[in-house]
Design a protein around this nucleic acid. Structure first.
Lengths: 121, 121
DNA sequence: ACGGAATATAACGGTGACCGTACTATCGAC
DNA sequence: GTCGATAGTACGGTCACCGTTATATTCCGT
């Protein structure tokens, strides 16, 4: 699962949103770092719906315009939880490896990772 | 940056490795979850070298066979640090969003994310 | 001595997620 | 009336990654 997909699931975790709402939520969640393009969003939404990670919550007709709300399914919430743990493990593992780094310019703050203790297993 | 690329940088953070050494290191770092294919590895290594994130450390001729060692550059270490922080932010943001989730099956343990405090900004 | 597994690197085509852009359409602001 | 924001659809392109194959050597068991 890639970053945009992960952030789409994250955006839908709190409450159902329609497409454009997801674009705004991801923008906010990532502090403006990730601006979803329509092509990325609707492609990902279709794939996630196919996989059962999101479902169509309802379709509202607002002034002649269709507004389709997507909801994170229980399966999707579980998948997101798995991804969260994956990211955490990778971040910790990388920080520990960086702490072992010799010869390079020492980056301050990385040593704090050592206080986490063992990571293997 | 995708997962395999991130793990290759992580593997090279502690010490220079040759191709096959990276494959084994990533396997260990991910607890057997990620098995790098040669195509993935050497493609990524070429791209990372082009971007200056890794450099060729040395080339050993071990009984006729070339063994090329790759090293994480200072730029690469900085890039890895940026990615680590990115993963941490996303993991925390997602956990907080999941904590707001209503109606779905409550996953025990997710509430602990709330103790982290604010995440926006 | 021979075959097979592990070590080690290179090269190929295929897939799919993502991007960029354009198009349609409504509404409010200027 | 045009611009920008909202809202969704469609399409072609790119690139990272994957699966596989090829090639060569070393180590081990038989």
């Amino acid at each position: 699962m890639q970053e945009p997909t992960f952030l789409i699931l994250t955006a839908l975790a709190a409450q159902p949103l329609h497409g454009y709402g997801v674009i705004r939520a991801v923008d906010e969640l990532s502090a403006g770092e990730v601006k979803l393009r329509p092509g990325t969003l609707y492609g990902a939404l279709d794939r996630l719906a196919e996989q059962g990670l999101v479902t169509v919550d309802r379709e509202e007709a607002v002034e002649g315009r269709l507004r389709r709300y997507y909801r994170l399914s229980d399966t999707g919430a579980a998948a997101l939880q798995v991804q969260i743990e994956r990211l955490r493990r990778h971040a910790t593992a990388a920080e520990i490896q960086l702490g072992k780094r010799l010869g390079g310019a020492l980056t301050f703050g990385t040593a704090s990772a050592l206080t986490f203790g063992t990571v293997t297993g």
